[in-house]
Amino acid sequence: MAIKDYIRQRYFPQMWCPGCGHGIILNALLRAVDEMGLDKNNIVMTSGIGCSARISGYVDFHSLHTLHGRALAFATGVKLSKPELTLLVPMGDGDALAIGGNHFIHAARRNIDMTAIVMNNRIYGMTGGQYSPLSGYGKKATTAPYTTIDNDFDVVNLSIAAGASFVARSTAYHVLESIDILKKAIQHKGFSVVEILSQCPTYYGRKNKEGDAVSMMEFQKNTTAKLGSKALEKDPTLIPRGIFVDVDAPEYCQEYDKIVERAMKASQNNRVDQTLTTEAGHTCPTP
């Protein structure tokens, strides 16, 4: 299938600003789905609120545009009721880790089979450029004209600590790598987190004098390095990219099925016990 078969063409051109990295992530995600040959009728995308969340309107999958930060909660509901579906949950940095921080860590802890994509542009773009928990120390934003004093989360370490069984990072510039990682994340059975660094030339770029989309992508290229590469060894200040964790762990829906089975067996046994007692009562009347 062509890429155009996976989108709702009537909503294009999309609403993101020129050069927004979210479009590149959409592009990469569509190609990952296409290369994997997934049936679009078996894919559900849930998203929250923000620039990033608008992505669910553009894809021709089943889609839920839900509450701010609650994309993972809705996805959990969908997955538990229909475990055979593939869940894709793209979220912005604020959506995933500020408003939805609790949903994020608990979805990771449960290891429920879905793919959380953190489209990290380090700012709240849609509401006018407020700093987010991923902006980092010393950055400028509409709400931090004299720079931020908040430290940022490390999405990768946070996800690992919370128990995600697949954790990876890439950038909008490294689109081939993103496609490859997204494919592996979707294939992975369990909670997968893929952080993709994105550019917001309109707010983050302008406020922090990082230039236009092109120079922000050059920045992504120059400040990151592949895990295990010589460049990273030489300069540990570079942001590592690649797959950090990929382990097999008990998946939530499968564990839930086991509980259902156990409960059914227990209730069956109870019923048998009850019948036996009643029968015993009848056959041995008290004198």
Binding site: K4, F12, V175
Partner: peptide, 11 residues
């Protein structure tokens, strides 16, 4: 095809 892959607008 890097232009095609990196185009945010699928254009």
């Amino acid at each position: 095809k890097l232009c095609e892959l990196r185009c945010p607008d699928l254009a």
